[in-house]
Amino acid sequence: MTVLPKDIPGDSLKVTVGTANGKPGDTVTVPVTFADVAKMKNVGTCNFYLGYDASLLEVVSVDAGPIVKNAAVNFSSSASNGTISFLFLDNTITDELITADGVFANIKFKLKSVTAKTTTPVTFKDGGAFGDGTMSKIASVTKTNGSVTIDP
């Protein structure tokens, strides 16, 4: 049996954390987006972790974005102690894959008090994996961190 590389060099799934701005007490939304989904033969499963400074940001909610089908079954998240974990699994293993680019999740943060303008990162942590529509590992994932700026 011969195994051929399935990824064209330079191609990767792009996962990007967005940015937001606000004043202390505001609730802002930071999107997590996927790009080049079709090039990577869709997404059938993924789990990953984001870190944030809990002294500056309070997670209000984490909701599935419009590219997630049947989110009540296929999407899960949790947030505590400065870490947000995400889990997606197409429970049907074929019919509810992520097949389009767009917003995977929206994180709502309540901004805490600061004395001066502060930009705090929302960054990928170690761990996690992504699988394509056949549940094979997506070897190349380009992750881009985001941030939230609090301006009193």
Rank of each mutant, 00 (worst) to 15 (best):
M40C: 14
N74G: 02
V28T: 11
A129H: 00
A20D: 10
G131M: 01
A129S: 03
V17C: 14
K125E: 04
D126N: 15
E96R: 00
G65C: 08
I138S: 03
F124Q: 02
F109V: 05
A116I: 06
S85K: 01
V59W: 09
D63R: 13
I84W: 05
S61R: 10
G146N: 06
I67Q: 12
V103Q: 05
F75V: 03
D90Q: 00
K108M: 07
N106G: 03
D95K: 02
K137V: 00
V141T: 07
T144G: 07
F109P: 00
T99I: 08
T33V: 07
G146L: 04
I93W: 14
T27G: 08
T144L: 07
P24Y: 12
K108V: 05
F109W: 08
K23M: 11
N145Q: 04
A129Y: 00
P5Y: 11
S140E: 01
S12A: 11
T120G: 06
Y49W: 03
L97T: 05
L57K: 10
G128N: 00
D7G: 11
T134Q: 05
T119W: 04
S85I: 01
G10T: 09
L13T: 09
T123W: 12
V43Q: 08
K117E: 05
I150F: 15
F124H: 04
S61W: 13
A100K: 04
M40Q: 06
G131W: 03
D151K: 14
S76F: 09
T29V: 11
T134A: 05
T45M: 04
I98S: 03
K137C: 01
T29N: 14
C46G: 05
G102T: 03
V17I: 10
T83F: 15
F124I: 02
K143I: 01
G25Y: 12
D95T: 04
D36I: 07
G146P: 00
I84H: 00
K137Y: 02
E58F: 09
G146A: 06
M40K: 07
V60T: 11
D132L: 00
G10V: 10
G65S: 10
G127T: 02
I67G: 08
K125G: 01
V43W: 02
V37E: 04
D132A: 05
G51Y: 11
G65L: 09
T144S: 07
I8F: 13
D7F: 14
E58M: 14
L50T: 11
F104S: 04
G51I: 12
D36R: 13
I67H: 14
P24W: 14
T16C: 10
A116V: 06
V37S: 12
T92E: 00
E96K: 04
V103H: 06
L50K: 05
T123C: 06
S136C: 15
A100Q: 05
G44C: 06
N106W: 01
N42D: 14
V15R: 06
G51H: 14
G133M: 04
K125P: 01
G128E: 04
L87R: 00
S136N: 06
V59E: 14
L57P: 02
A38R: 13
A79W: 15
T19H: 11
K143S: 02
D126A: 15
N74C: 03
K112F: 01
T123M: 14
I93R: 02
T119K: 14
G51N: 14
S147R: 06
L97E: 01
T16Q: 10
L57V: 10
A129R: 01
E96L: 00
G18F: 12
T119L: 08
V62H: 08
D95G: 03
V17T: 14
A100V: 05
A129C: 01
A100E: 06
G51E: 09
F34C: 12
S80A: 06
G128Q: 02
F34I: 06
T149H: 15
D126W: 15
S85V: 03
S80G: 08
I107F: 05
T134W: 06
F34V: 06
K108G: 04
T29I: 10
T123Y: 05
N70F: 06
A71V: 12
T19P: 11
D90T: 02
S136Q: 02
A116E: 07
G25M: 14
D26S: 12
F104V: 03
A105G: 07
A54Y: 08
K39W: 14
L56D: 12
F88P: 00
T134P: 01
K6D: 13
N81V: 15
F48Q: 02
F130G: 00
G133R: 09
P121D: 05
V3K: 08
G127E: 02
G128L: 02
T16H: 10
E58W: 08
V15Y: 05
N81C: 15
A64D: 14
N21T: 13
D151N: 15
I98M: 08
G25T: 11
N70Q: 09
D11E: 09
D53S: 11
K125W: 07
F86D: 01
V59H: 08
T123L: 06
G25Q: 13
T92Q: 00
V15A: 12
T92F: 00
G51C: 08
V3P: 11
G18Y: 12
P121Y: 05
K143M: 04
K112G: 02
N21I: 12
S113F: 03
S136T: 03
D95W: 01
G25A: 10
I107T: 03
F48T: 07
A38F: 07
K112D: 02
E58H: 08
S61H: 12
S61E: 11
P66F: 13
V60I: 09
D101R: 05
I138Y: 01
T115A: 07
K69L: 08
N91D: 15
A139M: 04
I107H: 00
E58Q: 10
Y49R: 01
V28I: 13
V103Y: 04
K69C: 15
T118W: 05
L57H: 08
T45D: 00
A139T: 05
E96P: 01
T33K: 13
V103P: 11
N47W: 00
T120R: 14
F88Q: 00
S12H: 13
D11M: 14
S85G: 01
A64T: 08
V28F: 09
N47P: 00
V122K: 00
F130W: 03
F86Y: 04
I138F: 04
A38C: 14
V148R: 00
D90M: 03
N47F: 01
D11W: 09
D151W: 15
V62C: 08
V3Y: 07
T120N: 09
A38G: 14
D101W: 00
G102L: 15
I84Q: 05
S113P: 05
V60W: 12
A20S: 11
G82E: 15
F88W: 02
F124S: 04
G131P: 01
M135S: 01
V32H: 09
T118Q: 05
P66E: 12
P9V: 10
V32M: 07
T115P: 06
D132T: 15
K112E: 04
T149D: 15
F75E: 01
K112T: 04
A79V: 15
D11A: 10
F104W: 05
M135C: 00
G127V: 03
